[in-house]
Simulated scan of single mutants.
Amino acid sequence: MAKTGYHHGNLRATILAAAAEQIATDGVDAVSLRGLARRAEVSHAAPAHHFGDRAGLLTALAIEGFELLTVEMNAAGTDFHAAAIAYVRFALRHPGHFDVMFRRDLLRGDDPQLAQARNRSGAALRSGVAAEQPDHSERGQLATQLAAWSIVHGFAVLWREGALENSALAFEQDPEALARTMIATVRFE
């Protein structure tokens, strides 16, 4: 029996999953509401009903990504090294989400749900850094948090973009193992 497109179980989740998959394989520029409607076998107006426009769709995908990242980071606890590996693991497991989460040019920056989701996901990495430096000033804590985020985010992007392919720096073939070794060198003072 063919789908009618009008009795879809959870169209919103289906469209978000299709968008994440397409971004992971084809890049964010390939995503359109009409194309996603075709993939989900629904009318071309159905995604617009849920997201409004492309920015709405990508904002919803980023929110979902930050929520998934929060779960991953919270599971790691307050240990900085575990949280850092969790961040890298998330980026590798959810490339379609990761590729839009930090692209403010694609998102509705004034969306309060986006701001809340972003803050929740950052709290885990911040708490890991704070646990490592309980006696540091607020400014010192912030500088270290920025450095920690830059390290894990930069590594995830380098790996995802293939920049470490055939590089002597990639002495491990498993990205988590390589990240674990790299992060073990980080010392807080």
Rank of each mutant, 00 (worst) to 15 (best):
residue 54 R to N: 11
residue 63 I to Q: 06
residue 33 L to W: 09
residue 94 H to M: 05
residue 77 G to K: 06
residue 73 M to H: 14
residue 85 I to T: 12
residue 49 H to R: 09
residue 43 S to N: 10
residue 46 A to S: 13
residue 94 H to Q: 12
residue 64 E to C: 08
residue 58 L to C: 07
residue 79 D to T: 00
residue 72 E to W: 03
residue 60 A to S: 04
residue 29 D to N: 13
residue 34 R to S: 15
residue 65 G to C: 13
residue 29 D to V: 12
residue 89 R to K: 13
residue 39 R to E: 07
residue 31 V to Q: 00
residue 79 D to Q: 06
residue 54 R to D: 06
residue 35 G to Q: 01
residue 35 G to F: 08
residue 29 D to R: 15
residue 43 S to W: 04
residue 80 F to I: 03
residue 40 A to I: 07
residue 28 V to C: 03
residue 65 G to Q: 12
residue 46 A to N: 08
residue 51 F to E: 11
residue 32 S to K: 13
residue 88 V to W: 07
residue 35 G to P: 07
residue 57 L to Q: 05
residue 84 A to Q: 08
residue 63 I to W: 06
residue 60 A to K: 02
residue 32 S to I: 13
residue 90 F to Y: 13
residue 74 N to R: 14
residue 76 A to R: 01
residue 90 F to G: 03
residue 49 H to C: 03
residue 76 A to C: 02
residue 35 G to R: 10
residue 29 D to T: 14
residue 29 D to C: 10
residue 38 R to P: 01
residue 91 A to I: 09
residue 72 E to T: 10
residue 87 Y to G: 09
residue 41 E to K: 13
residue 40 A to T: 04
residue 53 D to Y: 10
residue 76 A to Y: 00
residue 49 H to L: 00
residue 28 V to M: 00
residue 67 E to R: 09
residue 86 A to M: 03
residue 95 P to G: 08
residue 91 A to W: 10
residue 33 L to T: 02
residue 64 E to R: 15
residue 39 R to N: 02
residue 43 S to R: 02
residue 50 H to L: 10
residue 49 H to W: 07
residue 29 D to W: 00
residue 61 L to K: 06
residue 88 V to K: 06
residue 57 L to A: 09
residue 86 A to E: 09
residue 71 V to G: 12
residue 60 A to Q: 03
residue 33 L to Q: 08
residue 64 E to S: 13
residue 60 A to P: 09
residue 85 I to L: 14
residue 74 N to W: 03
residue 51 F to M: 10
residue 46 A to E: 10
residue 93 R to M: 13
residue 66 F to I: 09
residue 94 H to A: 11
residue 63 I to P: 10
residue 68 L to G: 15
